[in-house]
């Protein structure tokens, strides 16, 4: 059960990364001004990385044994 939860989380994790890469691709590919591209990409990446890292840390700290025992 724990390995299933972990696999599902990793799938969602990589979906987040894929969407973020698409967003960054669009920002760099289609921005009309380079300054806008750099600023928006930096802002997005910074907050996204912080949220992803904390999300991963919080996930690793989940008490899987208590959660799975309730099912």
């Amino acid at each position: 059960m724990t390995s299933l939860i972990l696999a599902l989380y990793l799938l969602i994790f990589f979906c987040y990364i894929a969407v973020a890469l698409f967003i960054l691709f669009h920002i760099f590919r289609y921005s009309l001004k380079r300054s806008t591209a750099i600023f928006s990409a930096s802002l997005f990446s910074l907050v996204f990385i912080v949220l992803m890292v904390t999300n991963f840390i919080l996930f690793t700290r989940l008490p899987f044994s208590e959660i799975t025992s309730s099912f």
Binding site: F44, N55, L58, L62
Partner: peptide, 30 residues
């Protein structure tokens, strides 16, 4: 053990809100 689950869900919400806000911005700006 619920506090860590609670914070994880909250963090996931913020992450989704952040991604969605940039999708809205891309649709507007481009």
């Amino acid at each position: 053990y619920t506090v860590s689950l609670f914070h994880f869900v909250e963090n996931t919400f913020f992450l989704c809100i952040w991604i969605f806000s940039f999708l809205i911005w891309i649709d507007y700006y481009f």
